[in-house]
Amino acid sequence: TQASDDDDENEVPVVTHQQLAQVFDIGPSFALPPMEEMFYQVAGLFSSKPLPQSVS
């Protein structure tokens, strides 16, 4: 995981089990948020941070 820090052009975040579990382990299956919402959370965890010019 340290190696990816050198490659600051495309830094892939390290996602822990806990972070992923927090998306899904929030209630019984029949009371979970819509799938699309959960997908955006998962994709958010695995996405590289936006380029600096996009957030400024």
Binding site: V23, F24, S29, L32
Partner: peptide
């Protein structure tokens, strides 16, 4: 039905991460 697919997707997403780790 929604609950089945949410259950499956959650379990398998976490499991896939776990398997690759």
């Amino acid at each position: 039905y929604a609950a089945l697919l949410a259950f499956w997707a959650g379990i398998m997403t976490e499991a896939t991460g776990g398997m690759l780790d």
